[in-house]
Design a protein around this nucleic acid. Structure first.
Lengths: 116, 116
DNA sequence: GTAAACTGTGAACCATGGTCCATAGTCAAG
DNA sequence: CTTGACTATGGACCATGGTTCACAGTTTAC
């Protein structure tokens, strides 16, 4: 599958697919033609793409997803390790929520003073 | 007051002061010496700096703070207008919290499935 | 007179997640 | 043979909030 077909299949732009590939998130094969090399994407890369999107929805950065995929490819992404990563991320999300809630509280206090 | 003294007075780096000045958040005077021009900061700029920090703590971006300061300087930052800006910001903060909570919920669900 | 401490300028750089652009090779249909 | 559709490459660009750097003029102390 060339990039256009793959991008359409997963519902992303070709630029995004190229970007993910450069980041090492997706693995592309190569097909030569004259002086040019065209990237090809196998079926399993679509599953990989879905995995990436799910991780993104969980709040992971592309960098973190790349690291996790590398571990997965190496076979070292055990259930325990997965749990660890999820718990770490949960903590950082909770921190961010707490910091936003603090801003929210200050805003409400300020609003009350302003409205009063 | 030259930049070094001012920066120390407000507890920021000289680079930050220059950055804010370029952004239009702080207003500097000018003192010439030979071919060079040195920025000077009056007392009221320290209050301005405190205002900026408070706004940042409320979740406003530097751009938004700059706009608000411009309105304040023009005398058009009425209590009603302030309330409006605070309410707008409160809404965006709430949206961000909601989106983080969604990620949090998904993470917890995933953790439960993984741990089980 | 010279060295230290201060100042200015413009630009590049950091992370984040892409998008957009120009230039140019490849391939199939007409 | 030409046109259109596809592809690759490298780099610039967006927002955000600064930081760091090199190069160079100024001022103060000794």
């Amino acid at each position: 599958m060339l990039i256009g077909e793959f991008a359409q299949a997963v519902g992303a732009s070709k630029d995004t697919v190229r970007f993910y590939t450069r980041m090492g998130l997706l693995q592309a094969g190569e097909r030569s033609a004259g002086q040019r090399h065209y990237a090809t994407y196998a079926e399993d890369q679509a599953e990989r793409f879905v995995f990436i999107e799910q991780c993104k929805a969980l709040g992971f950065t592309l960098r973190e997803i790349g690291d996790a995929l590398t571990e997965r490819d190496a076979g070292s992404l055990t259930a325990l390790r997965q749990q660890e990563l999820l718990e770490q991320k949960l903590r950082t999300i909770e921190e961010r929520i707490a910091s936003l809630r603090s801003a929210e509280g200050k805003l409400r206090a300020k609003l009350e003073r302003t409205t009063r």
